[in-house]
Design a protein around this nucleic acid. Structure first.
Lengths: 239, 239
DNA sequence: TTGGTCCTGTCAAAGACCTAACAAGGACGG
DNA sequence: CCGTCCTTGTTAGGTCTTTGACAGGACCAA
């Protein structure tokens, strides 16, 4: 185990369908969606290193997956090369960026400037990946006015107007559990289309709004589950 | 979509096998392992609310999953009730805690006291879930000596000795990418059995050491992929 | 040109996972 | 006692994902 993978759950699932460049229609499995960012990430590294071509086998082995799976994933979008020729890095990168949706910056805000919120606000990478942080909000007057990387913390009451005015697409939810649903409702009403939920609770939204739960405690407990069984040799095998 | 689910990836997979209370042997699917913490979480809430009994249907619907799936999950461990009687909350909670491995506290350290590391260090919940934070480490002399919730930041050089001395089981990796593998090696050599990796890179470890990657950017991109398609009646035409 | 090698797109088989269905057990009321 | 209504454990079947296999294109060297 190792991955990367977060799986979107099946509970109230949004199914994504695409039509590939040959007119065929597919439902894109969540498992594939999860791998797209990994492909992009590795490809950008290759691009920066000046690599021009890469084969499915090279790319797949560097990500510890099977080449056939990678080709299968690409197949949903019609493929990016022709039989016989490896993929061109400089073509693949923008194609994947467009598919994932980071070709155009997706502005986001963080609501809840507690420790986790501040930690995320400081995470420089998001900007680079196409998710510029436009605002941080909190109810606590002691936090309001502080700046994180040039972005000021504003009072929560200003959030809905800010979202509307700046066309914010994604809201990061790092508030206390008990107000999570309420704050999410406000964000959604103001026009946010994606909620990145770090609170350990389920957020209800209308079906047009995507929620992604990042349940840190779950990850930690999975680790615990497996490490616990490491010592007890009869219960754990590696393939 | 909403999930909860982070999925461990299949790439270098550790398979967990258990023997249930009837002597039957199963491989526990990762998907099940991911749900166990959700069950436990909800059950603790019920317990605190004074609820004594809960049926698979009640518990499942509150988590937006199918009751049959919940029973199936429990089945790997032999079941926790008898046909005809609902689950007893006060029995189920400790049973799940034991299965997940949080019945005995699992001491952990955070290596890398940057913003993300500090944010995690401030996250109070881990303590409550059975993962006490025993130490924080960093190379930066400006950070060394600071305290976060009573836990001092120590120089990285002291980390291996500390791990050995305090029997640290889990190491949280929040260092810069370029030193991630090196620091992980040190942790592993010192005796850590689980690595919670927040760096956007793969960590190689011996098979007895479990790595869990928490790739935040992947979650964000999945959100982007889906939100992008919400406006376009679920279809993407690629040229 | 021909043969060899590497490549992709495609599909079918295999595998992992989820779900519906059901037998059987308990509690309760009549 | 029986019938009803709830429950769980268990399994078989269906669905989703991954993997293996292969046809055929592209390049290269002889």
């Amino acid at each position: 185990m190792s991955l990367a993978g977060l799986r979107s759950d099946r509970r109230r699932e949004i199914q994504v369908r695409v039509v590939n460049n040959k007119g065929k229609k597919f439902r894109v499995p969540d498992a594939t969606i999860l791998r797209l960012p990994l492909y992009l990430d590795k490809l950008i590294l290759l691009q920066q290193a000046g690599v021009k071509e890469v084969s499915s086998r090279q790319l797949a082995t560097s990500l510890d997956i099977k080449a056939s799976q990678l080709r299968h994933d690409f197949h949903y979008f019609g493929g990016f090369s022709k039989p016989g020729r490896p993929y061109l890095v400089d073509k693949l990168v923008p194609a994947l960026e467009e598919i994932i949706g980071v070709d155009i910056p997706v502005p986001m805000i963080i609501v809840g400037a507690g420790h986790l919120g501040q930690g995320l606000a400081n995470y420089r990478n998001f900007e680079r990946l196409g998710f510029p942080l436009r605002g941080i909000f909190d109810v606590d007057p002691k936090l309001v006015g502080l700046e994180i990387r040039g972005v000021p913390i504003r009072p929560l009451s200003e959030m809905p107007g800010f979202v509307r005015e700046h066309g914010i697409k994604i809201g990061v939810l790092t508030v206390p559990v008990n107000v999570a649903q309420d704050v999410a409702n406000q964000m959604v009403a103001a026009g946010v289309v994606g909620v990145w939920n770090f609170t350990p609770t389920d957020i209800r939204t209308p079906p047009q709004v995507i929620v992604r739960n990042e349940r840190l405690a779950v990850g930690l407990m999975c680790l615990s589950f497996k490490t616990k069984r490491i010592g007890q040799n009869d219960e754990l095998t590696q393939d």
